[in-house]
Design a protein around this nucleic acid. Structure first.
Lengths: 341, 341
DNA sequence: GAGCCTAACTAAAGCGCTTTAGTTTTGTTG
DNA sequence: CAACAAAACTAAAGCGCTTTAGTTAGGCTC
């Protein structure tokens, strides 16, 4: 039951620690350890269930095959799924994932970055609060490998993986217009996030159109802190107020969820009175009556791209360092009954 | 920009590494380092943003302040939330969390346990596949600190944190009976999980009753692998078949979700034709029309109890080692319209 | 002013591994 | 069979920290 160390293998087999280490790291051949010795070592290690101490290994080699993942909130389905996919992909490539949630707090994000660096992760994948350019620039300057996803800093040159927020919302909004809706409201979160800005712009483009007949922009922006309380008022204003919208575009899934609940409570019929669509989904959207039209983010692809870009950077490091990799992924738009299609 | 090490601090301040290490670990006083020296070291470290290498620290101290979390699936809202809460609580107590998903695969679970041990985690929190008693017993024998949650092995003596599955379902089922439903169906996953067994028994107790007028047990068990495909048939059999149930109890949230979708597709009215309730929820349940009656698991408490039990064990270790800590938490039962209340 | 304390400090071993710079052994060749 | 190369192997330093077992300097006591 007591732990078996490299040293023990060496002693028991009467070879050097060097030999054992080399063989177990697949460097036996290139270091001319005889096949026979290699086999003895491998057999013994396997038979005795040897597992190396990764701390020692990491300390010695200066790398840990670990990547740090920082997300705003693991309880958000979107990030939870991303985290799952990132873990899967990382594992496929031989890396372990350490994650932490920043809870949308830039200070916590900053502390987490530091803490992950202490723990000697080889690289970071971050969905930033986008209010932490200080650390991002610092990572940049220190040439530490990292990839931003979902949220990026438009003014900083970094690797990133995002989706086509603009296109997604504009397509969604146009679709509503094509279905004959005239007064389309946009419900969003008051935020500096570029993603949110892009979604708004997508809505704006669609509504203002490039052709002649322009529609009015009708927007409600809620604070992240209290949107659950405020959304009912917002929705009421939009639907029952002067603006009298006949369609709503929600900029994100959690808003949509609360919005739909509010609409139901108010007894507003979807899609007869007001058509609904949402950017990004939760699994419950097809439980709603009617099911909700929404833009789907390509979770697996985001995860895969992020991990792959990061690991490439970690492993090649100095080669193409000024060649930032950006990926803007397409989104899928699934039409359900809520938009009155 | 280059990294600052303990050694550098010592050199620059012309003191020993010992002094620096002791002071930075708050052991200055007990080792009689003068206040003045302590202050110099602290100031210098702070000013230069010193952060210790945790690998070296861990290697040297034989502990890492890290706990490993193994869950079946981070994309499941229940586990995602648990993971979030575990992380929060662990951080409060000064620990970092490393997580991985087993995807309900006992082999992967086994590999993950080994891999986490290599990485020198101080303890493990596991929602096991419950088909891996080998490793659990092995951890037990090695006196390695761990806590099971959500799933436990009834035949093995371990720490665990679970909820009152039996009571939750039986309460839910009784409630349906009290509302006048006569023929209550139970939809569950075919599984060896004790939790599932307990939920079934809760249903059984409620339906068979202790009094005279016994009702019939009507059960559909689906395979985990293909429940999404099979559920529609199962529901059809129950509602439209000979059994003609007038209420359904789902043993778990993902079954309920698919079940409700199936019912809608079949045009079956909830709760008029069939009342619905579910053990455990997803956030979308209140989007459904009508909202779904369900048992809520006390996520934060599960997380807190698991972390606290684990850390106590890690830190006190040898003291009360044969005193396994078990916690069976109460569940909340929220009545919504779907059960016909 | 020798002996002893205490306060303040430090040298160096050790954590378990990797890797560089060897050394030893064997085999080949003229 | 001396000379040398190749094959097979190893000693030991080093990764950055903690901690044990000291040492040193100064102050008191009698």
């Amino acid at each position: 039951m007591k732990k078996l160390y490299l040293k023990d293998i060496a002693k028991n087999l009467d070879v050097s620690m060097t030999a054992v280490s080399l063989v177990l790291n697949n460097k036996g051949d290139e270091n001319k350890i005889s096949q026979e010795t290699q086999q003895r070592i491998l057999d013994y290690a396997k038979a005795n269930n040897y597992v190396p101490n990764q701390l020692a290994r990491g300390l010695s080699r200066g790398k840990t095959e670990t990547i740090g993942l920082i997300i705003p909130n693991i309880s958000d389905m979107f990030y939870a799924k991303i985290a799952g996919s990132i873990e899967d992909r990382a594992m496929e490539r031989g890396y372990t994932v350490v994650f932490s949630s920043s809870n949308e707090n830039p200070d916590k994000e900053s502390r987490l970055i530091k803490s992950m660096l202490n723990r000697q992760v080889d690289g970071l994948i971050i969905a930033s609060t986008q209010q932490n350019s200080k650390d991002i620039k610092w990572l940049q300057k220190g040439k530490f490998p990292f990839v931003l996803f979902d949220r990026h800093y438009p003014e900083i040159n970094t690797n990133y993986v995002i989706v086509d927020n603009f296109g997604g919302v504009s397509k969604m909004t146009k679709h509503l217009l094509e279905l004959g809706r005239k007064r389309i409201g946009f419900v969003t979160i008051l935020s500096e996030l570029d993603a949110m800005e892009q979604r708004f712009l997508g809505y704006k483009l669609a509504v203002e159109g490039s052709q002649g007949k322009q529609q009015e922009l009708i927007v409600e922006s809620l604070k992240y802190d209290n949107y659950t309380r405020e959304i009912k008022n917002a929705v009421t204003r939009l639907v029952r107020g002067k603006k009298k919208v006949d369609a709503l575009v929600f900029s994100t899934h959690y808003l949509a969820k609360e919005g739909i609940i509010a609409l139901k409570e108010l007894g507003i019929k979807i899609p007869q009175e007001v058509a609904i669509s949402s950017f990004s989904t939760i699994s419950g959207f097809d439980l709603a009556d009617p099911p909700i039209t929404a833009v789907f983010q390509p979770i697996q692809e985001i995860a895969k791209a992020s991990v792959d870009i990061l690991i490439d950077e970690i492993e090649k490091k100095n080669t193409l360092f000024d060649n930032y990799r950006r990926r803007v992924l397409d989104v899928k738009f699934e039409i359900k009954k809520s938009c009155g299609a």
